[in-house]
Amino acid sequence: MATQTTVEFQDCKGNQIHENELYERLLIIVKSQRTVPGALIPVLQTAQNLFGYLPEKALRMVSKELKLPYSEVAGVVGFYSYFSTTPKGKHTVRVCLGTACYVRGGQEVLKAMTKELGISVGDTTPDRKFSLEVGRCFGACGLAPVVMVGDETFQRVSPSKVNDILNSFD
């Protein structure tokens, strides 16, 4: 696992929140899911929503409390590209490379995004502002090529628009 840097956490209102409190919240959630079959994936999603990524300590907690082997938890985390074990930037940029976006220039958009942010896919900018990911169809093929930043969708994106999109986020 990648070494973890100090990460500051914020709640949904943008207030600073201490890491320990997040673990306390996670523990309550995991304990409530102990007897629920198939609880692993929803619990991991919750954990990722809490921390912004899946720190090792959280995964060990999930494994212990759900009584699932750590290897299985890691297997599920590694299977879904949605899950990340490295801290993410404040905003996650996802460039769609699904079929429709691909044929309409998604790859060019990604190249521009990579250049503009100065990072490769899967990485986070040093100021932890942006993380860059690739999406495989957001279900908005009519708007191709599509870029998502957080929950916001940008349609018919061309390489020249990339800069403006990024500048609209602080």
């Binding site: 699932l68 082997p69 750590y70 290897s71 299985e72 890691a74 297997g75 590694g78 299977f79």
Partner: peptide, 13 residues
């Protein structure tokens, strides 16, 4: 996993 209950190996990636 199923027979020994050790859980060291699993499919990754």
């Amino acid at each position: 996993n199923e027979i020994q209950g050790v859980g060291s190996l699993f499919a990754q990636g």
